[in-house]
Design a protein around this nucleic acid. Sequence first.
DNA 1: TGATAAACGAGACGGTACGTCCAGTCTTTCC
DNA 2: GGAAAGACTGGACGTACCGTCTCGTTTATCA
Lengths: 202, 202, 202, 202
Amino acid sequence: MSQAPDDGGRRKPGRPRSEEAREKILAAAHAILIGEGLGRLTVEAVAARAHVGKPTIYRYWANAQELALAAFLSRPPQVREIAPSRSAKDDLADHLAGVIAAFASARGRQIALTMASVDGVSELSKAFRNQVILKSREAGRAILARARESGEIGAATAVETALDMIYGPIFYRLLAGHQPLSAAFAAELVETVFAGIGRKEG
Amino acid sequence: MSQAPDDGGRRKPGRPRSEEAREKILAAAHAILIGEGLGRLTVEAVAARAHVGKPTIYRYWANAQELALAAFLSRPPQVREIAPSRSAKDDLADHLAGVIAAFASARGRQIALTMASVDGVSELSKAFRNQVILKSREAGRAILARARESGEIGAATAVETALDMIYGPIFYRLLAGHQPLSAAFAAELVETVFAGIGRKEG
Amino acid sequence: MSQAPDDGGRRKPGRPRSEEAREKILAAAHAILIGEGLGRLTVEAVAARAHVGKPTIYRYWANAQELALAAFLSRPPQVREIAPSRSAKDDLADHLAGVIAAFASARGRQIALTMASVDGVSELSKAFRNQVILKSREAGRAILARARESGEIGAATAVETALDMIYGPIFYRLLAGHQPLSAAFAAELVETVFAGIGRKEG
Amino acid sequence: MSQAPDDGGRRKPGRPRSEEAREKILAAAHAILIGEGLGRLTVEAVAARAHVGKPTIYRYWANAQELALAAFLSRPPQVREIAPSRSAKDDLADHLAGVIAAFASARGRQIALTMASVDGVSELSKAFRNQVILKSREAGRAILARARESGEIGAATAVETALDMIYGPIFYRLLAGHQPLSAAFAAELVETVFAGIGRKEG
DNA sequence: TGATAAACGAGACGGTACGTCCAGTCTTTCC
DNA sequence: GGAAAGACTGGACGTACCGTCTCGTTTATCA
């Protein structure tokens, strides 16, 4: 963190923490999360896999839960960028297809499970939420903002609610599993969100 | 279960299972789930709290996970009934306010967490999903069906997607916690779902 | 202990403790004590060697120290019996040669070390002292008693002090190591104890 | 050690070792030994208490065991000097009372325990034995030598065995704890050692 | 008077063992 | 003869120290 002694900054005494060890730990934790799931992410297993002592792990994180957050945080899901083009509706559909591709996987389920089991008060859990869960939501917000400027969506639209209507269903399907989470769902969702379900008066 | 051997059926030999023990176990499990969370629901703790041996628990459920499902299943969240009246939009808003009231609590978070951590293949997990998670979704489906009949919503509406747009945001907010899950959200959500966010052409 | 339900005694419910496990643990502990020493007697190592869970060990003994006591207690050093004959002096010399043979070994040193590190207040440590360390002292006391009856030693002799003068030097040499602890020492010691070092008048 | 480079000897370059640090370490180690016992003498604890880095300790001693030896060696038990007078028997009794006073304490027990746990091959452990354990033995040897000259003890007396008979019982009682280690024991012991226990022929 | 070299404090490192909690299984007695 | 109770093996927990290492700092000498 404060590794750079920028000028007047006083370095702490003692041997500095090994960035290499930290990275090995996160890599091992991530590999276990993907390969075996959150339930198998034990500090012991990570220590063995990373060739690191257990106290080194506890020096950074208080328990396996925090380590999971940090592991996902260090390797956030990569939602592919979209080229802003044509209409906001198309852009949003493209974007959501990317989100679904990123989350509809073993890793996605583990992330969702981790999200659910987090209490949400610590700094780390807030960072996890903002960087891992809600990152794409901000991308969606940008698209909506552009759409409002171009007049594609109504000026009075409740943006927060709209965003929940867009991203909520994806996690809902991911977790409840009552319906498949396919790429086609992205287009269908965007369509319905834009059109609404109420009868239009002519 | 097969406790009543009325119809000429031969009673099984040996000591019959104690229904009282089963109920004590579920009560203890539920109390722990509400009071301490899914993470603290250990078979050991339940056995101690219910004054029951561990094997008695394992006789009914294979692990703590299943026990959690059963505990919630035995005490499903009570979403208050609504009196069908006025418009489908109002009915839906009323209903969603009830759903939010039922889930926006420690118990609701535990249920959501349980949902996330369930794999979804066993009978019990399916029952949990259908009875605990998706029960209210069916109520919503009924309201939408009535609305379609009355012409309140378009005939071409994709109902499944619409339902996801209605219930998804609730769980999304519950788990991600980026926005409060208040009663007001119910009305706002219904409004936006019905209206859509796209600009209406005059 | 109260394993035998002698008639009206009510046995405790549940699975009784396994005497086999207890014996395996003691055997493993003893083997480690002899082979590697008190310092290597870790609960972990014993559990692994005995194919027993750590909690099973802790159910019987509070720590490795107690386990060491119990291990030695279960296999007390075998001082060879002597055939009471000829004179008390010869009997005592024979007996001491046996004591030296039993203690002048890796095992003897471990016992002495264990004796030193014991605090001496617990029941177990008292039993260890009485059964392992002071057992042979009682044999010596019997020999002296016979000698007094036969008139071989003075009636006014302070027996406790005499016993300390007989056994003390053995442990002294064993621990301090300033002089070898050979069989010859037994005879020499007895001789000097009987004769005393003061100039005889008359 | 080789701090004084008088005779043309070339001083080593670099910062010389701090005698103050060495002393702080020994003081801290000794305090822990007396206050908490050998088992709590960890390098970590000593470093913390002495406000010294762990490597500074390891620069002088290889492990906590050696440090314990050095700590006792630097503060050897003070057996009070006796004024040679009257008879050797009285002198010896006086001397032994001093030995008992010095060893019958928490510190004495820790020294005895340390003696027992030492293997006895290293230079340091030999020094410990000679300076801490056997120092008083030499005082006893001097008294016996004087007694032999004055004719107070027999010329044929086996001095080594006699010394073991004198000091052995003290450590024996200290470690085994079967009898109190009081000042009175000194006189009784000397009396019996001189007189012997065998019946004197008239 | 600097440069150089070793010892200093601090503390992180890879490890081992601790003593505890809990998972599931097994073995006994009770109903 | 199955239910109930509790001991069983085993694995992970989070902590205390081990003995080693790498820092930045201090203190001496040698050039």
